[in-house]
Design a protein around this nucleic acid. Structure first.
Length: 426
DNA sequence: TCTGGGGTCCTAGGACCC
DNA sequence: TCTGGGGTCCTAGGACCC
């Protein structure tokens, strides 16, 4: 049997997560804001129907949202991450070949013969996920990942499919492709869509029928792959064991403008601590560290000035105090008095598996790195049990103007004991 | 006043080498 | 005034994804 791909995609994921713990939001327009309550990053169907645009700056649509009684929430990534994990666990339980593609999407490869149709299998997956998590999903099926993505999009848009569409069993796939804009294909972004349209290619069907070598010439190998995938030739394989990350980063815009080195130090230390924890959770150590700094928009100018410094560490590490030390060194070299800053961040690169990293015992204190390891392990365990930042490093401070604005956040229902939802029987 | 954050891949161009 | 061919490595920037 030829491999068939399915894409399972959670509907309006962030809005759906909020609804699971706040059923009053059911049937209501809901939007979720980016960090710092900056712009809109998720919308319920009702909000989409009102014409609320993805990525719209919140301050521009605030009045409109109020007039239409739209529920506005700050993002709650602890909740979404945990709900995502629950959904993915179910998929892994029910299917052998699963690739978690993003926080709300997974590819499944159907290879074995089944006594049910694939569409029937997909419907039962959908039912189980809904019953056990409360999250609605749509499933698209096709001979390539790109076609599965397309099928998913169609399944979501047209309620008559009841959440599942197998594009290869459709009597007229060309008519489906003709109904979708070229920019809606996986891999064709804003810029490429514009250029394709300028060449008279405006639908998915037209893109499928483009000469692949022309595509290769004008849109590089990625464009070529997309055309082949639309023709049913699989060029993007499953990745069930995701390769190790090549970089790990943490950055945030400030809640308010920041001018003092002391505050920058605190913010940067916090971001380093977050990113270092991410390194440890994946068993990685970094050999290189980059700090970047972004100024506020200059008056009458639309560009942000950014500066960055990179330092190579003498020894690859995931030890928070060590990494904070080097990061603060980079910052000190960049800081300019009298400048309004808006964002700071850290990027770790040159990542290697901790087990493979060569450890040079320090001549005068050979047990030092072992002690650092067990300290970090303890910190991680305490924070996992009692909540983020229960144990923290002095350099991180206790929050100031640099902390982001999140005025409308729901509780961490599933990840903090003190925020568990209460159920009262009467 | 107010527009997120974290990733990956690809290409062009420069430096360098033989 | 002329000025090869081929290779590697690195970086910056662009484009894309969610």
């Amino acid at each position: 049997m030829r491999a068939i791909f399915a894409l399972v995609d959670c509907n309006n994921f962030y809005a759906s997560c909020e609804r699971v713990f706040n059923p009053k939001l059911e049937g209501q327009p809901v939007v979720v804001l980016s960090n710092n309550d900056g712009c809109i990053i998720a919308r319920s169907n009702e909000a989409k129907a009102l014409g609320v645009k993805m990525g719209a700056p919140f301050f521009q649509v605030r009045d409109f949202l109020r007039e239409h009684a739209v529920h506005v929430l700050s993002s709650n990534y602890a909740l979404y991450g945990d709900m995502s994990h629950r959904v993915m666990t179910i998929l892994h339980r029910l299917e052998p070949d699963v690739e978690v593609y993003s926080i709300d999407e997974a590819f499944i490869r159907f290879t074995q013969a089944r006594n049910q149709s694939l569409v029937a299998c997909a419907h039962s997956l959908r039912t189980v996920v809904r019953r056990e998590t409360g999250i609605p999903v749509s499933i698209g099926i096709g001979p390539t990942k790109t076609l599965a993505k397309l099928a998913n999009r169609l399944a979501k848009k047209d309620a008559s499919w009841d959440g599942v569409l197998d594009i290869s069993s459709h009597p007229d796939p060309d008519s489906l492709m003709a109904s979708v804009e070229v920019g809606d294909v996986w891999g064709i972004g804003h810029k490429s869509a514009e250029r394709l349209k300028a060449s008279g290619i405006s639908t998915v069907l037209a893109l499928k029928d483009v000469d692949p070598s022309w595509m290769r010439r004008h849109f590089t190998v990625t464009g070529f792959r997309t055309v082949m995938e639309l023709r049913g030739v699989a060029m993007v394989p499953m990745e069930e064991q995701p390769p190790d990350r090549k970089s790990v980063a943490c950055s945030r815009s400030f809640g308010e403008r920041v001018r003092s080195l002391a505050e920058l130090n605190e913010a940067l230390s916090s971001h380093v601590a977050t990113a270092a924890q991410k390194l440890r959770s994946q068993g990685l150590v970094a050999s290189c560290l980059n700090v970047f700094l972004m100024t506020a928009r200059l008056a009458g100018d639309n560009v942000h000035f950014t500066d960055n410094r990179t330092v190579e560490l003498p020894e690859a590490s995931s030890h928070t105090p060590t990494l904070i030390h080097y990061a603060l060194g980079c910052l000190k070299g960049m800081f300019r008095q009298g400048t309004d800053y808006r964002k700071i961040g850290v990027v770790f690169t040159g990542l290697v598996r901790e087990a493979l990293a060569s450890r040079q015992p320090t001549l005068f204190d050979p047990g030092r790195s072992d002690r650092m390891d067990s300290l970090m392990k303890t910190v991680d365990q305490v924070n996992a049990r009692w909540g983020r930042n229960t144990l923290r490093f002095g350099a991180m401070g206790f929050g100031g103007r640099w902390q982001m604005k999140q005025g409308r956040k729901s509780a961490s229902f599933t990840t903090r004991w003190d925020e568990l939802p209460l159920v009262r029987a009467s």
